[in-house]
Design a protein around this nucleic acid. Structure first.
Lengths: 236, 236
DNA sequence: TCAAAAGTGTTTGTAATACACCCATGA
DNA sequence: TCATGGGTGTATTACAAACACTTTTGA
């Protein structure tokens, strides 16, 4: 067997360095009623009037994940938010400017923490369910990320990332119902979450509501014994 | 807001076309005892003696997914096998030849259907559990794909892809036990799978075994009512 | 005192788990 | 006839699902 050195290898593949890699961030927020996604007006003539995800080309000198965090940081000013790589989209004609494959991430942010700056006035929060068309293949990317979010929401306690630091159990239930598009029983939902040992009672209550005020909780990551009861059984 | 045409956009990003995109295939097989993965001896001097996944650079004129199928086809002669994109790895120094990000796929094949050709004599099936080191970041990729496989195996009936067309329920259980590294109750396992309505009884039996011969089954995709009982509840 | 949402407990159904005996075959 | 693994049924347990009334607050 022959071996090749790096340079022989580089030479062999140099024709393949014609492809750009981009990252696209599906930034989800929740406004207490519906799941939102942060979009920008497309700056490509071909897609004028369409909305697109927040993305950018990955720089040759930065990690892939770092590129995604950079996009998020530049657009929202946020750091240390929940973010997950979801899928890479590499269809041939997906970008009119040439061969660009894109790695899609989604992140969950507290919508109140996103201060849209003046120079970001092309940015808007859109209701996910109302979105029909987007630029590029971004609708497909959004759909994929939304499906993954729904699945994650069922399997891991990540919904907190979309809520303010203090929230009521009803807030949490509203979030689940809105994102999963289901109706849940109040008593069972409450029972379930309280038994999970992830909610810390702040001993505070809602104020200025014209009904019995609800208790406020915060999420306590430490308390969560991850995957404590992982199914031994087969779940299908 | 100003708009840019494609060419302005291309110009802006042209410095970023310095990154190659590769695909790496984690090809899993099962030899009735242990989970195997098909590896090749690295042809890079830097990794001489190490094993690596089967991969290749994506061509600028082919779909990303097609590149993965091409690698699989070229190496195993197989088509139409189970294959899934898992994750994209894009750390800065992951490839010594330059900036190469790689999209990892795993596929499940019937190990008996893979005829390793003469010119593929650097290819070998390795027992997944015994693998300690690999070239590049391929161990990390393998680990990621293996974790995903385990999860998928619990949630979807995909194990069949690793088995011959005719198999016994015990074969299937061996597969689950080996991959998930658990012991399962024979009676419950059988009950579970028979109730799933995905096994078609071939009315054939094992031959030449020195004990009561087991029935042979095949998987019947049509019968499987996908996600019929999808949890409404929350699974963590 | 009324409206509106918060808070609580019990019952029921379903599915996973644990477990022991008989059956068919080749040696 | 024996050794080996195949095939079956039931009791128990755990958890999700269904369901109704009392409590607290502001108006």
């Amino acid at each position: 067997m022959h071996t090749k050195n790096i340079h022989a290898h580089l030479d062999e593949i140099k024709d393949c360095f014609q492809t750009a890699v981009s990252v696209d961030c599906v930034i989800f927020g929740f406004d207490n009623t519906a799941l939102k996604v942060l979009l920008i007006e497309s700056d490509l003539k071909e897609y004028k009037g369409s909305w697109s995800l927040l993305g950018n080309i990955m720089r040759p000198d930065e990690d892939l994940d770092e590129a995604a965090y950079r996009v998020l940081r530049e657009r929202t000013g946020l750091e240390d938010v929940y973010m997950e790589q979801i899928q890479t989209f590499g269809a041939l004609k997906r970008h009119p400017a040439g061969r660009v494959i894109t790695v899609a991430y989604y992140s969950l942010v507290n919508i109140e923490h996103v201060a849209l700056k003046k120079h970001n006035n092309e940015l808007h929060w859109h209701t996910v369910k109302d979105i029909q068309h987007m630029a590029f293949d971004h609708k497909q990317i959004l759909d994929t990320c939304y499906e993954r979010l729904k699945r994650q929401l069922i399997e891991q306690p990540i919904g907190f990332n979309l809520l303010p630091g203090k929230f009521t159990i009803r807030d949490l239930q509203n979030l689940y119902e809105a994102i999963l598009d289901v109706k849940l029983d109040r008593r069972n939902f409450r029972k379930k979450f309280l038994s999970l040992n992830v909610l810390e009672d702040l001993n505070e209550a809602q104020e200025a509501v014209s009904h019995r005020p609800a208790k406020l909780y915060k999420f306590n990551f430490e308390k969560h014994e991850l995957q404590k009861k992982r199914f031994l059984g087969i779940g299908f």
